[in-house]
């Protein structure tokens, strides 16, 4: 508990690289939003209330004089389904925390600070304040990026010329490398990658993230594990439990 402040600052610092990339594609969103006629207040309201990059891109895309409220809500639901899994994966980090703590901390959980926290946890030293510090820092970077794009009005007319659209992919590739656990990840990652590619090919939207995540988790559940004996024993315990 006394570690709050140092952990918060450590989390913010660890998120500098992802915040830089969030600012880059945030500015792209800002440019798109200015073309749709959003005011800075609309933008900040959305940044603060929703705080989810991919969903905000789709919302701005659907933005019009007559808002398609139902379709928009449904689209956001589908795109953000992965947060169900992201939230679930944070359970070990939050174990033993009070409900109020969980309620307060979960809003500022985005792909970026979640991934940084997971990567840090693999090295054995993440905390909820680390996650939250990253979230606050990311929120500031994301907000400035979107506002720069919105108010700067098209100073980057073709972001793809500068590979800015690849910033997201590059930074998350680096983070994926950070959570790689070695041999035990081979099967889940192959399953996840295969499912993601297939789903991406056949279904619109962001279903591929959910499909890949579930395929990876399921293959780890049904596949054989490294420590065969321990796994068997635990499996039996579990079976007995049901």
């Amino acid at each position: 508990m006394k570690q709050r402040k140092p952990e918060f600052i450590r989390g913010a610092r660890a998120n500098v690289p992802v915040a830089a990339s969030a600012m880059a594609y945030g500015s792209v969103l800002g440019v798109l939003a200015s073309q749709k006629g959003l005011s800075w207040l609309d933008m900040m309201y959305m940044n603060t209330a929703v705080f989810a990059g991919a969903a905000q891109f789709v919302m701005v895309d659907m933005w019009s004089n007559h808002m398609p409220i139902f379709e928009m809500t449904l689209a956001v639901l589908v795109i953000n389904l992965r947060y169900l899994l992201i939230g679930a994966s944070l359970d070990p980090l939050f174990s033993g925390k009070r409900l109020l703590h969980k309620i307060g901390m979960m809003h500022l959980v985005a792909d970026e600070n979640w991934a940084v926290t997971m990567s840090e946890q693999r090295r054995g030293s993440a905390s909820t304040w680390f996650l939250f510090g990253g979230g606050v820092f990311l929120y500031m970077a994301w907000s400035s990026g979107t506002l720069i794009g919105l108010l700067g009005g098209g100073f980057i007319t073709k972001p793809e010329d500068y590979a800015l659209d690849f910033a997201f992919t590059a930074v998350f590739t680096a983070l994926a490398v950070g959570v790689w656990r070695g041999k035990s990840d081979v099967i889940p990652w192959v399953a996840a990658g295969g499912a993601a590619l297939l789903t991406h090919h056949f279904l619109p939207g962001k279903w591929y993230i959910v499909a890949g995540g579930l395929a990876g988790a399921l293959s780890a559940m049904i596949g054989p594990c490294e420590t065969e004996v321990e796994g068997e024993v635990k499996g039996e315990e579990n079976a007995a439990g049901y």
């Binding site: 992965r82 899994l85 992201i86 679930a88 994966s89 359970d91 792909d111 991934a115 997971m118 690849f166 997201f168 992919t169 998350f172 590739t173 983070l175 994926a176 959570v179 790689w180 656990r181 035990s184 990840d185 889940p188 990652w189 399953a191 996840a192 990658g193 499912a195 993601a196 590619l197 991406h200 591929y208 993230i209 499909a211 890949g212 995540g213 395929a215 990876g216 988790a217 399921l218 293959s219 780890a220 559940m221 049904i222 594990c225 796994g231 635990k234 499996g235 315990e237 579990n238």
Partner: peptide, 25 residues
């Protein structure tokens, strides 16, 4: 513990990999 735990442990990597692979390809 058990199988379920193993699935949850594999989840972060699987999610991150699924997030980036289609855009890489």
């Amino acid at each position: 513990s058990g199988r379920f735990r193993r699935g949850m442990d594999a989840l972060p990597g699987a999610l991150l990999f699924s997030l980036v692979l289609p855009s890489i390809v």
